[in-house]
Amino acid sequence: MLTGMHLTAIGDNNMLLEPTDALDPSSPDDYVAELMEVLQKEEAQTLMYDLNQVPLIDQVYYNWLIRLNNLCRLANVELVIVNIRTTAAFSLAMSLKTAPPFKCSLDVDSARHGITASLQD
């Protein structure tokens, strides 16, 4: 089991990542290798990152998401951010200088049905 997150296979090669309070976004190296292993083992095609418990996304957390997105591209997995809170979306949109490279979806169900949004389409 990975520390700092719950990683669940939810069918159709989709995996759901729910970060816990123990996740340290300032140390992505602690998670990358192990995560890659799980994604490959499960033959994941989509990784849904649930931000429901994250009230605010600062630069450190955003960097972690970028790092995770890079990892997913290497593993040929699509990263989809789901359940972002309005406060987090607001603060992130105000601070971003470029469009985020990952896709976003309103919730897990929408993401499963391929309803995503991205400015990088």
């Binding site: 951010i81 789901v82 972002i84 309005t86 979306a89 976003c104 919730d107 949004a117 400015l119």
Partner: peptide, 14 residues
């Protein structure tokens, strides 16, 4: 642009 990004982050299409 900030508004469009915020909409996309919420998972909606702008």
């Amino acid at each position: 642009i900030q508004m469009m990004r915020a909409i996309c982050l919420m998972g909606a299409r702008a």
